[in-house]
Computed example of a mutant assay.
Amino acid sequence: MPESNNPHADAPVAKLALEDGTVYTGKSVGAGGEVSGEVVFNTAMTGYQEILTDPSYCGQIVTMTYPEIGNYGVNEADIEHQKPALSGFVVRESSRIASNYRSEGSLSDYLVSHNVLAIAGIDTRALVRRIRTEGAMRGVLSTVDLDDESLIEKAKNSPGLVGRDLVREVMPAQHSVWEQGLDEWTAVHLEDPPAGDDAPHVVCLDFGMKWNIPRHIRARGNRVTILPGTASAEEIMQQNPSGVFLSNGPGDPEPLEYAHKTIAELLPQVPVFGICMGHQLLALACGAKTFKLKFGHRGVNQPVQELATSKVEITTQNHGFAVEEESLPDCLEITHRNLNDNTIAGVRHKETGAFSVQYHPEAASGPHDSHYLFEQFQKQMRQTSQA
């Protein structure tokens, strides 16, 4: 491609090195510096701002498979957390034009303002094929060290995700009350929403929660209190919850023994609903095990089947770990399966009714096929209060 036609021609050089010795050279379209992380990919065509601000990406360098990213800009309404938590961002081409009536700025300016390193102009198809073949790998993204051998060595010595408690890096320090509902794009209309002190009270355990989750819960007329993921069962029950929600979050769920203990104590006391990391933690609290997927599930086009109805949902997913089916205890039944690899995508506790899914029904971004799960949680809280 002629230099004059290269949209990144004037940008500083950036390099991405993988632990297997592969190095990609491109241009910096974000902040300068150097970061390490597990290099993964996401197959979504849109929703890059939601991906950037999803705390579940903490410790990861995210590659977008869609070739042009940034064409509709960024805006405050679509953020999923107060700031990006991912380590770095990789795209084929970063659009120089932000064309959308909702746009409040360019992607590149957003990356710089939030100190996110990003590289463009590399062959993302080759990178994604390598990850699919070899599995997710540790990597280093740099604009300051451009020596290939040095970067490869840094990648080999960087920490992986297994055994690390990344949740502590993204969860809130204190409890808070959530009052924001959904915007006009995904508004939920209830026939007779509860109000005031009579409304169900949902306590969300925040392990790195996307904000569209409490928006959905609040939009259904609930009072919502957010507690850090380290909160004890006693602290949670002091809130007098109608139900407890277990959020998504980054990394390996097995080191979070404090959460396993808390959830096990909550199960006999209150309705429980978990998403993604919350799904894995519910399973671990019941005695199951988890394992690391080869390259994970990340995208807005993941097919899942609800076993009771045979209905297929197209779902948003973002996880690198899954529940091991062979370790599933008798108290849990499988409710959903991922149709790409047949892994467990949902479970239900046979005795307490607690349930969880290995995907994101709040769909930010993504399809709305799975909104019914919030209604299922609502119904369970209502039935418990009437018992």
Rank of each mutant, 00 (worst) to 15 (best):
N71L: 11
A98C: 01
P228C: 14
F273C: 00
L284P: 06
D369I: 08
V270S: 00
L141F: 12
R138I: 03
H297K: 13
P255N: 13
R125Y: 07
S56L: 10
R298A: 15
G251I: 13
H319R: 09
V90P: 12
L339G: 02
I275P: 11
P214Y: 04
P228V: 04
G296P: 04
S310E: 01
R125T: 06
Q383W: 11
L127S: 08
A363N: 08
L18I: 01
F245W: 07
E38V: 14
L373K: 13
R129A: 14
Q269W: 01
V224D: 09
L256E: 14
A233R: 02
L205T: 04
A364H: 12
H81L: 05
T43I: 12
P250I: 09
L282F: 01
D147M: 07
I334S: 06
S56D: 07
S87K: 05
T186L: 12
E313G: 08
L86N: 13
G287L: 04
Y66N: 04
Q49K: 06
G287M: 02
V112K: 15
G135V: 06
Q180W: 09
P172R: 09
L52C: 08
V13D: 00
E34L: 07
A9E: 10
I334L: 10
V312Y: 04
E362N: 05
V312T: 14
D145N: 14
G30Q: 03
E234Q: 10
A199H: 05
H260Q: 07
E153T: 14
V167D: 07
E80H: 00
T133Y: 09
V323M: 08
M381K: 09
T343I: 12
Q269G: 00
A283V: 01
V244P: 00
G221N: 06
V13C: 01
H297P: 12
E257H: 06
S385Q: 15
V112C: 08
V13S: 02
V224P: 06
D10A: 13
E80L: 03
H81I: 04
N75W: 07
E324A: 01
I79K: 14
A31Y: 10
D10K: 14
Q378F: 15
I275E: 03
A308N: 05
C276V: 03
A77I: 12
E80P: 00
M137V: 00
G249P: 03
H319Q: 05
Q317W: 02
E325H: 04
Q180Y: 13
G181L: 02
E326R: 14
K15C: 11
Y48S: 05
V304A: 15
Y258D: 13
L146K: 05
V312K: 12
S150K: 11
I263D: 00
D20C: 05
P271N: 01
V62Y: 04
F321T: 08
N240E: 10
